[in-house]
Simulated scan of single mutants.
Amino acid sequence: MAALTPHRHVCFVACRRDARDHELATQRGVAERLATLLGCRYAGDADPAATGPIGYAVPNDTLVSLEQAQRLGIRGRLDLFGGVVPLPFIATKVITHGLLHPDAPAPAGWRREFAERVANAVLPGYSAFSLDDAQAAGRRLLEEGPVRLKAAMGTGGAGQSIARTPQQLDEQLASLDQAALQAHGVVLERNLSEVRTYSIGLLHVGSLVASYFGSQHNTLNRHGEEVYGGSELTVVRGGFDALERAAAGDADLRWAIALARSYHAAALECYAGMYASRANYDVVRGHDAQGRALAGVLESSWRIGGASGAEVAALQALVDDASLESVNASTTEVHGPQAVVPPGATLYFQGDDPHVGPITKYAQVHPHGHARRED
């Protein structure tokens, strides 16, 4: 079999400073398994401030500088698992929505045409970089129902709240760090009920191209709060065209794929220099306060993520068996005393994390549901 990459070794790059122990252990584990997949030696951690080629890179966050990427020897999507953007705000939630008015404050490099391109692929909403704009945008959205506020730098559901009245809106906006609001922004978005969220992804790992659809599920942490509990994916050999064919019998899923595809293309075309080998889009479908059905991309991820253990497991299965057209795989996170890990699963972490307590994290490929190529 031909090598998937010319790189000889894979390095993990810990550029996200607030990553927790269980996250770092999982991310390093994914990097090590990517090395096996690519036929490379795993070389451990590389310094984010290095000034020379480090091999195939697995950073644990989106790289927000083209110059930094080039210093590490990363020049395109064949050189890393993740993504590179030219400016920091592009890697956050704020790019998903437009500004309240053309003269509203925004970061240098803001491209108004991106929000225009994705207007039909996202929910009604605004991004704001001042308290006045956020209040005005929120009141405009409240005319049609509850509003979800999202901190620009939040991941998953962190840093989010729902305002149902102008008073709640003002209280929630006042509770934000005003310096952070001006520097990073806040997202205000139509809140939906009866929601279903799809995970849509595109992977370019060396010469191997795959895509997937799937869903996430929540679990309870030690405080009884709902947190991410894992992902179930169907990974298809090939890009978005192949993914749409695999979803032929599900109109809602095909629509979610089309929305993610539109968002992905707009990002690459509007922000020059950007590239990503791992792209994941959360697409929601639900109803607003008026009972109207709405769907849209909630946010993007151009970095290693919670589903990456399943992604790599599925990619390895595709490499091991050329007859496979699609693979089902999952990741699972269990909080509490040591959970039983299923036979054949890849254990990424099992222990007591200082921040979240006892947690077990594993990935597995499921033999049922695999599709093979037709002769």
Results as ranks from 00 to 15, higher is better:
199 S>N: 14
151 A>S: 10
143 E>C: 10
151 A>I: 07
235 V>A: 01
245 R>N: 04
229 G>F: 13
222 R>D: 10
258 A>D: 09
182 Q>L: 12
196 R>W: 04
264 H>I: 05
173 L>Q: 08
210 A>G: 08
135 Q>G: 11
165 T>N: 04
267 A>V: 12
180 A>K: 12
223 H>C: 12
137 A>L: 02
204 H>Y: 15
179 A>E: 15
182 Q>A: 13
204 H>V: 11
267 A>L: 13
244 E>H: 06
229 G>D: 11
161 S>P: 00
134 A>Q: 05
240 F>E: 03
139 R>P: 00
238 G>E: 01
221 N>S: 11
132 D>Q: 15
245 R>E: 12
175 S>V: 05
155 T>G: 14
143 E>N: 13
188 L>S: 07
167 Q>M: 14
248 A>I: 06
198 Y>K: 00
182 Q>E: 13
138 G>W: 08
245 R>S: 02
142 L>W: 08
145 G>Q: 04
233 L>R: 01
145 G>E: 06
257 I>P: 00
146 P>W: 02
205 V>F: 10
184 H>T: 08
203 L>Y: 15
186 V>S: 02
201 G>I: 03
155 T>K: 12
193 S>T: 15
224 G>R: 11
159 G>A: 06
235 V>C: 00
146 P>M: 03
151 A>G: 11
217 H>C: 09
186 V>E: 00
267 A>N: 08
166 P>T: 00
143 E>T: 13
235 V>T: 02
258 A>F: 02
244 E>C: 09
161 S>I: 04
244 E>W: 05
232 E>I: 11
187 V>Q: 09
212 Y>C: 06
157 G>T: 11
259 L>H: 00
187 V>W: 13
158 A>H: 14
166 P>V: 06
233 L>I: 00
197 T>D: 03
263 Y>W: 06
202 L>H: 14
149 L>K: 03
237 R>G: 07
225 E>W: 14
138 G>R: 05
225 E>V: 09
249 G>P: 00
216 Q>D: 11
